Amino acid sequence: MTAISVLDLVPVRSDQTTADALAATLALARVADEVGARRYWVAEHHNMPAVAATNAPLLMSLVAAATSRVRVGSGGVMLPNHSPLVVAEQVALLEAAFPGRVDVGIGRAPGSDPVTSHLLRRGSTGDGVDTFDADVAALAALVRPDGVQVRVGSSTYPLRATPRAVSAPQLWLLGSSSYSAQLAGRLGLPYVFAHHFAGRGTDEAVALYRETFVPSETLAEPRTIAVANVAVAPTAQEAHRLALPQVRTMWRLRSGTTLEPQELVEDAEAAPLPASADDALRALTSSWIIGDPAQAAEQVRELARRLGTDEIMVQPVAGATRGTPADRAPAREQTLRLLAEALA
């Protein structure tokens, strides 16, 4: 059976405050826990009007406290923005508080615009990419219960993320390119491909990961997940309607148009995109899974078969209609419920 997990960017609608968006995320996480989702991951993006997921470890703690079974993780922590030791300390504490439930997805994208990235990195002139391989390896070592021994001159210095850990969070490498696939394979880490925004190259990247995989202490065989944008409703027509605000948000992002809080469905319908955007929109949404429960379940199974995985991570992209409670996202909850039921 194909398992589902969830990726949440904590979208902020035009009728929501940040507090409302967080409340809606926690409600969605409870639904994921209820329907048996394997993981619930939160993203890291900065200075974006429609995204409240700015601090993955903090969001992870909120989600973990609001749920009881689902694994909670980052999708991902953008490591060039952070010291590996700081990330290790954060997730080691989470693992201590919620043992056996913590994942750490690591990415190398900035997750923001150049100005915000510059400020996040305290004015550093580097982009963090040149040290990414070493930083991932350092984080993998630092989250182990026994920590690492740092060489200082002629002696060694013990360094632990937390004093008396008995377990470690599971590390995953995120990516959308051959670079990330090869790095995950070489380090023996499980790999998550960003199929939801890359769309193309998924099969090639996963195949490359499997070809280059070297067994590690924590993983004997390759393990992969693909992320897909998903909207499910009782009818395919309604699912496409509910996905419209997210489609328009992605079009703005790709076309360089000013970003705004996510529109309500009726507002999106009232202001159609120009006809010249049609080809771009078809290419943009060709990898999305939008339909009724049976259609969506079959597409999820087919994607899992293609990639040789038993797990697909869904980003629920169904929007909200006018009159929806500001602190809930019923159409996103419906996507999870209907998909889980159809896959059972």
Rank of each mutant, 00 (worst) to 15 (best):
V102T: 12
V102G: 03
D103Y: 08
V104E: 13
V104Y: 09
V104T: 09
V104P: 05
G105W: 08
G105L: 07
G105V: 07
I106R: 07
I106S: 10
R108T: 01
A109Q: 03
A109L: 03
A109N: 02
A109I: 01
P110I: 05
G111I: 05
S112H: 10
S112Y: 13
D113P: 10
D113L: 12
P114N: 13
P114K: 14
V115A: 15
T116Y: 10
T116N: 11
T116K: 06
S117P: 05
S117C: 09
S117Y: 14
H118R: 11
H118L: 09
L119I: 08
L119D: 07
L120F: 09
L120E: 12
R121T: 05
R121C: 00
G123K: 07
S124I: 02
T125R: 12
T125Y: 01
T125V: 04
T125M: 04
D127P: 00
D127F: 02
D127A: 03
D127Q: 04
G128V: 00
G128M: 01
T131V: 06
F132C: 04
D133M: 00
D133G: 01
D133S: 08
D133R: 11
A134R: 08
A134N: 03
D135T: 01
D135W: 06
V136H: 10
V136Y: 10
A138L: 14
A138M: 11
L139T: 10
L139G: 12
A140D: 15
A141M: 12
V143K: 10
V143D: 11
R144Q: 15
R144G: 03
R144L: 11
R144M: 09
P145Y: 14
P145T: 09
D146P: 01
D146N: 10
D146M: 03
D146T: 12
D146Y: 02
G147R: 07
G147S: 10
G147I: 06
G147K: 06
V150T: 02
R151T: 12
R151Q: 14
R151W: 01
R151P: 02
V152H: 06
S154V: 01
S154H: 09
T156P: 01
T156V: 11
T156L: 09
P158S: 08
L159P: 02
A161V: 10
A161R: 13
A161M: 15
T162M: 10
T162D: 08
P163G: 05
R164I: 00
R164A: 12
R164G: 01
S167E: 13
S167Y: 08
A168V: 03
P169L: 08
P169H: 05
P169A: 05
P169G: 02
Q170C: 00
Q170T: 14
L171T: 05
L171F: 08
L171G: 04
L173R: 03
L174C: 06
L174M: 11
S176L: 10
